[in-house]
Design a protein around this nucleic acid. Structure first.
Lengths: 216, 216
DNA sequence: CAAAATTAATCAAACGATTGATTAAGTGGA
DNA sequence: TCCACTTAATCAATCGTTTGATTAATTTTG
């Protein structure tokens, strides 16, 4: 049946995504991937043309989701700049940790950047997302809500950097935070809220101009 | 002469460090490294035993430097907690960008973590450095200088994360910050001070309890 | 409907190329 | 001569990929 075919391709993509994220592109052999996926080696080439084709297919499957991520936040005319930042942080943290393997893969690819065309594509998409957030902050500066000497770019690097650091140094992070980073439940229930609270508490005093209502 | 031998070994280590940082451990072949270093392939095995031995040798050369990095800051009884943080940030930013290739290599190794013994070693050293900074912040909290609900661990992740993000996504960062990240001069003269200022401006309102002298 | 023809999916086996590593022969200075 | 160094040649192993054969599913034909 057609559904089975799609499921099998998807299964291969799932496994390959995990394996690539664990040992990198060069570290993962086609035998390893096909073995863990429980399919014949030749199926990888049959479905995806090549190892690199498989790699690209993983990205193409995820990139569709990527696009629609942040579009709507900025178009919300009602929300204040700070409310937009809150919304962005909330969405970002939620999204990120559900695509754990892929995020790691993506970051490794950016770090190495061997596959020229794909790297360009990813870089462009990521820059789009960055700029979406940059726009929020800049609007806030122009409207007088945010401090005008705020370093917009480094704020971005902060949000993305913390995420990458935690996800790409599992052992150090697990020791540091005192619980297993691979435990999905703890990650969801304990760490996500903690990270959200932190980011907000960190950014607010740096970014927002407090209008002193108490006037003491 | 003996000096020549050491120089040649060091030269190989330099080249290998760069190549590893650019394409990863699996992506780098011994032929590639020996070729770029201008030595015969067998020399790598003659000097370092194996490819992994070469990899380890790179770390061993750097790790000595690593150890003595932050030891003295915390023993300065005179300095206030916030002054210690300032000193730490200053030292950290300065150090980090001078070992560009190695930092990237180290981070990739942590992300993959295939070489068990080495990974353990690195993780321990890194955790030591983390704890050194954690201690500074915790002391500040206990002494009443810092806010008691500050998330010490995530502060660490912030500092290390920003650095890693910038160094490991050269293209995105270069676009984002509007200049070439590989240009050492610009990095030194423009980016380092910018990053220091940002980190201080970011951490201060989050961390430090302001004693309102104006009393308005 | 049933037989034939076509297509898609899957497999074990093998391909040439490249990998990290080793060998044996040679080099030149002490 | 001895010893540390250097080289080209070569090794088995593994790499990604291709092959030809086989089976299962689908479509076409009579």
């Amino acid at each position: 049946m057609d559904k089975d075919k799609i499921d099998k391709k998807d299964h291969i993509l799932d496994v390959a995504e995990r394996v690539f994220s664990e040992v990198g592109f060069d570290g993962a052999s086609t035998r390893m991937i096909s073995g863990e996926a429980g399919v014949n080696m030749a199926m990888l080439n049959y479905y995806f043309g090549s190892k690199e084709g498989l790699f690209l297919a993983i990205f193409e499957r995820r990139i569709a989701t990527f696009r629609s991520l942040l579009v709507d936040i900025n178009s919300d005319g009602q929300a204040s700049p700070w409310q937009k930042v809150l919304k962005y942080v909330d969405m970002y943290v939620d999204r990120i940790f559900s695509n754990n393997c892929f995020q790691k893969m993506l970051y490794q690819e950016l770090s190495v950047g061997k596959r020229g065309e794909l790297s360009d594509k990813i870089n462009k998409i990521l820059l789009n997302n960055v700029n979406e957030f940059v726009k929020i902050v800049k609007d806030g500066i122009n409207s007088g809500d945010f401090k005008k000497d705020a370093d917009v770019q480094l704020i971005c690097a902060t949000i993305y950097g913390i995420k990458n650091y935690i996800m790409n140094t599992p052992y150090v992070s697990s020791e540091m935070f005192g619980f297993d980073m691979k435990d999905e439940k703890e990650l969801e229930e304990k760490f996500k809220p903690r990270l959200k609270n932190y980011l907000i508490a960190l950014l607010k005093p740096y970014l927002v101009i407090e209008h002193d209502h108490t006037n003491k």
